[in-house]
């Protein structure tokens, strides 16, 4: 069934390949569970639950999916494929509403994207890919080297910017991050850049002083453009477990997340945690990262994501 779907809508090679690793295990597991005719009994449900949990889907979202499977009728779900289809529908119901692409409107002042996330989630890499994406869309991006904490983070962005002719506003390691971003926004506005991508230092969501610093960056931007940042993007590592939900919740509470990018989906990580986040917080998911190349940052699409996730 899923194979036919895939043929009908050929997926981007890389993403399919990447997500197949994820989907394979899930489907294989379910098929093994339903050798021939077997009712959707309690034991089976427990196994489905287990499978979802092991895909990092999270207890809450799993329970919601299971409850739906039960509702769809124990009697009718006799074949593995029925369960599979019902599960897919259930997952789609959670992910469809959050599948919202990032649209850059035409405006006078630069569209500001503030990147936030824990250490090592892939903020800087994502910024680079986003900048390339905007360049391809004939938008002029500028970068703000707001990660003034990590050694050589500023240089990392500068080296990249030079390579791709993207201007980088920086002050150096140890500078006030809010001040760098303020400068950058001023400069981007004066020079009529279309998009300003503001990098920030990775921080664990439990560090209240660093979360305050993020709030300050937000506040300071607001002085130049009351609507800025127009997008506050949380970068999540797909390999993260249940803690991703806490990350999303805390960052959202601090600076109001308007979009999520899920990185590193090209490994074997399941990324199932987005179901949990979508279920609990309903934050839009913008992009997924499936490789090192700029084009490997793809808009998130619920159907594609689930099809690939459930594909053989």
């Amino acid at each position: 069934m899923s194979a036919k779907k895939t043929e009908k809508r050929p997926l981007f090679g890389r993403m399919r390949q990447a997500l197949q690793r994820t989907g394979g295990a899930l489907v294989r597991g379910i098929s093994e569970l339903f050798p021939g005719q077997r009712g959707l009994d309690a034991l089976t449900l427990e196994e489905v639950e287990t499978l979802l949990l092991s895909a990092d889907v999270g207890v809450e979202a799993t329970e919601r999916l299971i409850a739906e499977l039960k509702q769809t009728g124990g009697g009718r779900l006799r074949e593995a494929e029925d369960v599979f289809a019902a599960l897919r529908a259930g997952m789609l119901k959670i992910l469809e509403p959050v599948s919202q692409p990032l649209l850059i409107p035409v405006r006078e002042k630069p569209f500001v994207i503030l990147m936030v996330g824990v250490n090592g989630a892939g903020k800087t890499t994502t910024i680079a890919k986003l900048a390339r994406r905007f360049q391809n869309d004939n938008l002029r991006p500028m970068l703000a080297a707001g990660d003034t904490f990590r050694a050589a983070a500023v240089e990392q962005l500068q080296v990249w910017g030079e390579r791709h002719q993207v201007p980088v506003v920086a002050q150096g390691t140890g500078a006030d991050s809010a001040s760098v971003v303020y400068d950058a926004l001023q400069s981007a506005t004066a020079r009529h850049y279309d998009v300003l991508l503001a990098d920030t230092a990775g921080r664990l969501h439990t560090q209240s002083n660093l979360m305050e610093e993020l709030k300050k960056i937000r506040r300071v931007m607001g002085k130049l453009d009351p609507e800025a940042p127009h997008e506050t993007m949380l970068v999540l590592d797909a390999g993260t477990g249940q803690n991703a939900l806490a990350q999303a919740r805390e960052f959202h509470a601090a600076v109001g997340i308007s979009g999520i990018t899920l990185t590193k989906l090209d490994g074997t990580a399941k990324g199932g945690i987005v179901l949990s986040i979508a279920d609990k917080l309903g934050l839009p998911i913008r992009f997924i990262g499936v490789g090192e190349q700029p084009q490997d940052l793809r808009p998130f699409d619920a159907e594609e994501f689930i099809d690939a996730l459930l594909a053989h």
């Binding site: 590592d237 477990g241 803690n243 990580a269």
Partner: peptide, 30 residues
């Protein structure tokens, strides 16, 4: 903070290299 995939990753690294130990980073979160 890694999830279920930590096992797959560790297995692959363990098979490729004769590891002598593990260091867990970012353990100060929740």
């Amino acid at each position: 903070m890694a999830g279920q995939d930590a096992a797959n990753v560790a297995r692959a690294f363990g098979e490729a290299l004769p590891l002598t130990g593990v260091i867990l980073s970012k353990a100060d979160g929740d």
